[in-house]
Amino acid sequence: MSQSNATMNLTMYRISSWLKSPKPYLMFVGFGLVLSFWYFSVEVWKLPRFQDMPSLTEVFEEWFSEDPYYGLSIYTPEYYKHIGISLRRIAYAFCLATALGVPLGLFLGWSQKLREYIFPLFELLRPIPVLAWVPLAIIMFSGSETPVIFLTFLASFFATTLNTMLGVESIDEEYSRAAYCLGASRWQTFVHVVVPGAMPYIFTGLQISIGVAWFSLVAGEMVSGQYGLGYIINTAYIMVQYSQIIIGMITLGLFGYVTSALVRLAGDYMMQWRVRELALGGD
């Protein structure tokens, strides 16, 4: 109880000190600068090469219109269907990548022998870009859903596994020695030392993983599938409905940010010790 109260207070304290700092106001200035550059360059100055760009007013009018010209705005169920399908693919791929990548990374870091078997193969597959997997994904998996999920999964899986393995390697040997000294078995040491000790790296890996998941999702949706935010962007480009490209991009940015924030929150929740240590500035 007291522990969760302390966390709560800490969060409140952080929010209030954030509001008192110049940070949030600087953030608004930053947004303002970019949006006004967009507005002036396209609509007022009409810079060369900018004339075909969708304008700020055009995009926002379309996005918030009850009767959108190209059929996609915050009032159309179609818009949410695209978001929902993209989110579902991300969820499947990210969960699968985590469920497979974390244990594999833990064992790769823990067992020298397993590493010798698997790691070279892993390192050979890892640099292959997701786009190079597209044809194989389409040949291997039927339908339009599984290939996209597979592509989204791939990059996430590599990021998670590699970071988890590095996390295990980063653990100071004295922690395992201390555990053995105190009578822990090899398995107990794995559970109580290796897993929590690798946790900070695991969550760094998951942060990267969720980022590359969105990246590969869009790549996958552009080649295969009939729904999703990547699909919107690609179709809008082909159909010359440029304002929709921007709507798709902004939506991707928003959801990418929210999912990253959720992963970070989950990390803070699972690593209270780290949050509190960092809040005190170490010692």
């Binding site: 100071d172 020695r177 010790w273």
Partner: peptide, 11 residues
């Protein structure tokens, strides 16, 4: 241990 080996993730 010289550098201390309390588990930082446990109270």
């Amino acid at each position: 241990f010289q550098n201390g080996a309390l588990f930082p993730w446990k109270t």
